[in-house]
Amino acid sequence: MKIVVLVKQVPEADKVAVDPETGTLIREGVASILNPYCEYALDQAAKLKQTYLEEDIEIIAISMGPPQAKIALMRCLELGADSAYLLSDRKFAGSDVWATSSALKEGIVNLVPDFDLILTGKQAIDGDTAQVPAETAEQLGIPQITYGVDVKLDRRRIEVKREVETGYQILSTRLPALVTMSKGSNIRRIPSMRQVLDARKKLLETASADDLNIDDSKIGLKASPTQVDKIFAPPIKTGGDIIDGSDPVLAAKKLLDYLVENNFLKR
C-alpha cells in the first residue's frame, strides 16, 4: 500500500511581520519549519505503517516549494517517510490554492500513480486557508475527509474520526481517498541518530514542471484565479485599564465594580 503525505515548509508564523513603511513582508531571520499539521499527517502515516504490517506500507512525502524546502522533506525522511519528492520550478511561483492543487495533482499522478491514501495537515500555519487538500482531492476525483484525528484501515476502506463543532463523527470511505489531519501526538519527536543517518540514504528527488509534463496554463501566477491586491499591517489595538493585582481583595473588588458599572451582572 502506498501512502502519499503532502507537506509544506512554512516560516514560523508568529515571527513574520509587515514593514509598516514599505508594506512588504519581513522574513529575515525567520526560521523555516515543517508545518506542524503536516508533521501530524506524517505521524499518522508512520502509525499506520507500524500497525498494519501486512499492508507493507510505503510512505512517500511530496512538497511543492523553493529548493530549500528540501530541508522540510529531509525531516520527513527522518521521521519515517521512505522517499520524498520536491516539486520545484520557477513556473510554480505565485500559485494560489487552485494552481497549487493543480501542480500537486500532476505531481501525484506522475510520481505515485498507484497511490492508495493521501494524508495532509488540515492547514498550513502561514496561509491558514485549509483549502489545498480539498482542492487537490477534487482535482484527483477522489473522496476526502477533513479534520481527521485518527485513521483506521480495513482492507480497501478507511474509517476516520473527524472533529466537528459538537464533538466527533466517524466517517468511512473507499480508497483511494484523501484525509486531512487536525491533530496527532503533541510531542515534537526528535529523530534518533540512526534515523538521521538512514534518512540520508533515502530517495529525495526534485521534479520540475517539465519533468511532470505540466501544462503552463495550469500553474503559477497566470493560472491563479485569486490575486493579492495588497498586504498591510493589522490595525493596532490600544489596551484598556490595567490595574495592579498584588492586593487580591482590592483587585477582586475593582473587577466586580467594573462589571457592575458596565451592567454585566444579571443576578
Binding site: 516560516p11 513582508l25 500555519i125 485569486t226 491586491d229
Partner: peptide
C-alpha cells in the same frame, strides 16, 4: 495571514 500578523486583500 501568518497567524494574524499581516492582512491581505484578495
Amino acid at each position: 495571514a501568518f497567524g494574524g500578523n499581516i492582512m491581505a486583500s484578495i
